[in-house]
Design a protein around this nucleic acid. Structure first.
Lengths: 190, 190
DNA sequence: GACTAAAGTGACACTACTGTCACTTTAGTC
DNA sequence: GACTAAAGTGACAGTAGTGTCACTTTAGTC
């Protein structure tokens, strides 16, 4: 009953992701996006009232994918194995960290839809932390984690590792193994 | 022989810093800066041809201060004490990390002066890494560091810790102590 | 008190983006 | 093949920034 679309949501979100990761939030414009998708600017406005709204929808899309993958993680094993698994998982989704920081760049004086998405994204963010929390609880119950270390720091530390810039081009495998080693047992020789 | 200036370099750099840290590189404009300094836009153009040039000068200023403070560090002691000292130092200068990332946002199609500053800043960045390297060398020579861990990862890890977001408002002292503990000895109970 | 030179101003032309809307195109319906 | 409704277009007005420059202001010099 209607004309065929020239671009899918997925194409739009992929183009958005590339643009934001390469050049940052501010460098993302409807003009540039339209050019990449080979359509006119006006057609994008058919679906999103403005940039904030589009980006908030993009973030929802990314977060949903992340949480869905997270469901698939096996959490029935030994704690050390789980740490392994968790860090591997985070590295596989290394961009999520970068992507989620964009939430804060969406201004508050924007459309209802964007505001609603912002709230929803904050809920998701908390949900994500709660899942990680569950993981920590297992470690605590197995007496595997140092008691004096607050959960927030352990979680923050694990999460932050994915953002360490690899200035010296160290091989992926050594990189991940080394980070696991430091987080679990530290850098000091015993 | 000339009229009195309405703003010092220091005032200008402080205003620049605030603006960039609060709202990011793109949100920084000559218009807003001029408003903060209570001068006209034109007067800033007397000193800087454009935004890239101004920001590159600002980064030089920050980096110089950082390296100067770094000189003051005592590197004659025991390795564990030095790690302590180093992490405290990094936390004291926690903004330098955020500030230095801005280098990459300065485009290449800009003025000679800005390009020269960009090169100089990259040299400084390497210099900074070399100083940290010296610190690692001591640890290596005292056999205190695990042999299999590449220097780049240890340095990256230490540096990255300052960017961990403190979502749960953990007290500064506990925060720093915990991070030292994880980096040195890990989170797993022995 | 005239002169100088740096400091500062504000109007001008230019650019790149935003959001809108009357219009055109097109796949499917009757 | 006329009709419909969603998809897409491109011209328009508006906004917020950039870089320039002839001009004004002012502290110090002679």
């Amino acid at each position: 009953m209607a004309r065929e679309r020239k671009f899918t949501d997925e194409q739009l979100f992929n183009a958005t992701k590339k643009m934001i990761i390469n050049d940052g939030y501010e460098a993302f414009t409807f003009s540039r996006l339209a050019a990449v998708l080979h359509v006119s600017r006006g057609s994008i406005y058919k679906y999103y009232e403005n940039k904030d709204e589009l980006i908030s929808e993009f973030l929802m899309y990314e977060m949903n994918r992340f949480l869905h993958d997270f469901q698939g993680l096996d959490i029935s094993r030994d704690f050390e194995e789980q740490v392994e698994q968790l860090i591997d998982f985070i590295f596989k989704h290394s961009n999520i960290h970068h992507v989620m920081e964009i939430i804060h760049q969406i201004p508050n004086n924007t459309t209802q839809r964007a505001k609603r998405n912002k709230l929803k994204l904050n809920e998701y963010h908390i949900e994500m932390y709660q899942r990680f929390q569950g993981f920590l609880d297992i470690g605590r119950s197995q007496q595997k984690l140092k008691k004096q270390l607050p959960d927030g720091i352990i979680l923050g530390m694990i999460f932050q590792t994915i953002a360490i810039p690899n200035h010296f081009g160290i091989a992926q495998e050594i990189w991940i193994t080394s980070i696991k080693e430091i987080i679990c047992n530290g850098m000091i020789e015993k």
